[in-house]
């Protein structure tokens, strides 16, 4: 239990969602500057965020786990301690959000 609480607190600390929409006008944000963590070199430009990066941290963690589980929902359900349909529903929700993101890209 203590370990679980620690994980939850730590998650809150490191799992800030990447802001993807402008807080002022709700338009999509893009990456302007990238920095090398070693030598501090900076690269500036206009880089659009890929659809996966626009997902919430929870969704991104789900995608990574899904790939690591070789795309097996049964294995995902076992790992996460949820039932198969619950995990399946989460994947369906994610597919919907990705489709919406792609639709938004096409409209732009």
């Amino acid at each position: 239990m203590k370990h679980d609480v620690m994980i939850t607190k730590w998650m809150v600390k490191i799992m800030n969602d990447l802001p993807t929409l402008c807080p002022s006008c709700r338009s999509r944000l893009s990456v302007k500057r990238l920095t090398c963590e070693k030598c501090r070199t900076e690269v500036e430009g206009a880089y659009a965020l890929p659809p996966l990066a626009r997902l919430s941290c929870g969704d991104q963690a789900f995608v990574v786990s899904f790939v690591k589980a070789s795309g097996s929902l049964k294995e995902m359900a076992r790992l996460l301690g949820f039932s198969y349909p619950t995990v399946r529903n989460r994947l369906d929700g994610l597919i919907e959000r990705l489709a919406e993101a792609e639709e938004g890209d096409e409209k732009r």
Binding site: V5, T8, G58, F62, L79, L80
Partner: peptide
Amino acid sequence: PEKRLATRGPTVVSLLFRPFDYI
């Protein structure tokens, strides 16, 4: 990632009223 997603496990209330999230 699976640890980020994992919950603290089902509570008694969720097992009584939302059991099919887990089984």
